[in-house]
Write a protein that binds this DNA or RNA. Structure first.
Lengths: 126, 126
DNA sequence: CGGTATCCCAAAGGATACTG
DNA sequence: CAGTATCCTTTGGGATACCG
């Protein structure tokens, strides 16, 4: 089961870390999780994801769209209306991402505690 | 400091994006997945994770250790021997992370295809 | 509403020489 | 073996003004 990749990954053009960086962009997981619950409009996302800047939301959505994880549909209304949704490709990771997000909430206190222990120990030993 | 979390999350000290950044550090997922298969030594990890620099491996391991996701055990041998392993806290996300890693491998071709389509379309329309 | 454009700073990350 | 230290480049990311 331990198939080590001595000679890089299979896809020379798209190594593992590069693909994983996709979902490691600080806001990406939250965006995908939010969209996983249903299509959302730009400002809906902006409000739902606390603290995200307009610029970063745009950049992340573009990047996700470019990589085929998110679709962007423009409805030609009087006030512009754009709807974002996850694609089937992204559906495959909806569950694990949601699990991670839930874990993040649940584990936060433990992480803080761990940090304090670690930092305190460092202060004592050094 | 930009304290712009109006309502913020429940844990004032540890908002969601900050926790998620933990696993979004480009190499973090791979490190955790690798350790998920069993304890590993420094150089084992260095070889297993293709392309990672010594510096980044160290930094990531330290960070994971600090946050209680990875344990570090030093065996006082003649040649230094250090063993890394995931903690129970990280066990909780072993499965979703593994799923993500597998997905990354599997979905890589589709991502590349999506990008080419997107980039081509942009070139034509602009 | 749904973005772009610009500016600027902080953090991530690579390379690599050195060390107990 | 398992790191640390140093240097330097690239990327991420916030703020905000502006636009169709």
């Amino acid at each position: 089961m331990a198939q080590r990749n001595t000679a890089v990954t299979d896809q020379a053009d798209c190594p593992l870390p590069e693909v994983l960086r996709l979902i490691g962009d600080k806001w990406c997981i939250q965006i995908l999780v939010e969209l996983g619950e249903g299509p959302r409009r730009f400002t809906q996302l902006e409000r739902a994801i606390d603290g995200i800047s307009r610029r970063m939301l745009t950049l992340n959505l573009r990047n996700l769209e470019r990589n085929g994880l998110v679709s962007r549909t423009v409805h030609p209304d009087a006030p512009p209306s754009v709807e974002y949704a996850i694609t089937p490709l992204a559906e495959d990771i909806r569950d694990p991402l949601e699990t991670l997000a839930n874990w993040a909430r649940h584990a936060a206190p433990a992480l803080i505690a761990a940090r304090q222990t670690y930092d305190a120990r460092l202060g004592a030993e050094r």
